[in-house]
Write a protein that binds this DNA or RNA. Structure first.
Length: 416
RNA sequence: GUGAGUGUAGCUCAACUGGUCAGAGCACUGGACUGUGGCUCCAGGGGUUGUGGGUUCGAGUCCCAUCACUCACCCCA
């Protein structure tokens, strides 16, 4: 083999592609009912868009980006996530001049230079949504409601919704101080990773999974006790709306996000069926990012779903069912090929999905193929039929046969 | 970036402590059924056992290196 895919990327081939199409179709349908429109942005951007947006000291920016110079020497990056690009597009295309709120969804590949494992790849696919122009917590709740609708439409159970509020630039510094104050006296109890986090981003100590840190966190000050009045009210109303929407959730005061732009609401949906990489969807509010990117002060909230993980769950749950065709057209002899070609075309013009033999196979093997193709009917054209102006048909589900006149061909099958 | 495991036909795997070991099932193709599928039976194509070295009379089997894949950590979707 001369060429292989590079590490962590993969081909998606039939019949799995039908599963992807299903996920995409359901997502588009659900988003439409919530008033979201599709936005498409480039998968490549100036590097600075991500370093500024996601945060210089985040893991994504520090070690996971596909970054390289273009021929003119500018630093470009394959997008590691979708939000930064959508915010850029929102400003660049002056979408803030349209009536608020503006709601968008996108889907497509993202790239992170990580060590691949189950459910994590270097090229992976996300479906994401972003709602701009309101800080009303009902929008946060609507988002979760939409997310739940989508996951339900995909037939997924066993999911857990966790929410939290990580405050705003007013209240977070105070909490950060309280937390570092608490941790500083207990540094010898922290794992090595957390000692690093303690210096860099103390909030991330909170979601460490190591047992030694786990116990420490029980007593740690909680951010939801340090929220300013506005954030506290926002969080309370958010939770109230979630109840109104009938969403089962738990508050996880330890959940912080790995991206710097989040404010107030954060949330995550996990599935126990996924292994270590168990997050299905995650998101939150980012009220400061549009302004940070030079746009007008515009609150926003969004989330992203990992498509590989959705497809994995869907596949485990339902298996893969490639769509069958309507008709397989079999011929007895090369002399009939051209005639069949014409008839096949006529059937297709009527909207039927039709396949025929190209290899000159025996009738038996054509029938085998018809069966495997999932066709509902096989048509057979031989010299005998040609002379009488008919085509033989066989219903593959029960083996019953009959004949149709050629000129009745498209119509005969349309009614079935 | 760290750790562990695995690499034998398209897929899933077998081959005892190194000695006809290069196999099976599935898939594919053809035939039994000279113009008919799904079941059954038969036959066939397809592998320099990831790659490169080494040990040995002899290596898929042991050793080293390398590459790839997998799982976990980190982190995340």
């Amino acid at each position: 083999m001369k060429f292989r895919t590079i590490k962590g990327v993969q081909d998606i081939t039939p019949p799995e592609t039908s599963l992807w199409q299903k996920v995409e179709a359901i997502a588009r349908r659900v988003f439409r009912t919530y008033g979201y429109s599709e936005i498409r942005t480039p998968i490549i951007e100036f590097t600075e868009l991500f370093t500024r947006g996601i945060g210089e000291t985040t893991d994504i920016v520090e070690k996971e980006m596909y970054t390289f110079p273009d021929r003119a020497g500018r630093s470009l990056t394959l997008r590691p996530e979708g939000t930064a690009s959508v915010v850029r597009a929102y400003i660049q295309n002056a979408l803030h001049t349209l009536p608020a709120p503006q709601k968008f969804y996108y889907l497509g590949p993202m790239f992170r230079y990580e060590r691949p494992q189950k459910g994590r790849y270097r090229q992976f696919h996300q479906i994401g949504v972003e709602a701009f122009g309101t800080d009303n917590p009902m929008m946060d709740a609507e988002l979760l409601d939409m997310l739940r609708s989508l996951l339900e439409a995909l037939g997924m159970g066993g999911l857990a919704f966790e929410v939290n509020s990580i405050g705003c630039p007013q209240c977070r510094p105070g909490y950060r101080e309280a937390l570092t104050g608490y941790l500083s006296g207990r540094r010898d109890h922290l794992c090595n990773d957390c000692l690093r986090r303690y210096e860099k981003n103390p909030l991330r100590v909170l979601d460490c999974k190591s047992p030694s840190c786990q116990s420490l966190k029980q007593e740690a000050p909680r951010i939801i006790d340090h929220l300013c009045d506005d954030c506290k009210e926002h969080f309370e109303r958010f939770r109230g709306y979630l109840k109104t929407a009938g969403i089962d959730f738990t508050i996880n005061p330890l959940m912080v996000r790995g991206l710097d732009y989040y404010t107030r609401t954060t949330f995550e949906v996990t599935s126990s069926d996924l292994g270590a990489q168990n997050a299905v969807a995650a998101g939150g509010r980012y009220d400061g990012l549009v302004r940070e990117f030079g746009g007008p002060d515009t609150p926003a909230v969004g989330f992203a779903l990992g498509m590989e993980r959705l497809v994995t769950l869907l596949s485990d749950r339902e298996g893969v069912h490639p769509p069958g065709i309507d008709v397989f057209f079999a011929i007895l002899g090369e002399g009939l090929r051209e005639r069949a070609f014409r008839l096949v075309k006529r059937l297709r013009s009527a909207g039927l999905s039709v396949e025929m033999d190209f290899l000159g196979s025996s009738l038996k093997s054509q029938m085998r193929r018809a069966d495997k193709s999932g066709a509902r009917y096989a048509l057979i054209l031989g010299e005998d039929e040609l002379e009488r102006g008919v085509v033989k048909y066989k219903r593959l589900s029960d083996g019953s046969q009959g004949e149709v006149r050629e000129e009745e061909l498209p119509g005969f099958f349309l009614g079935l």
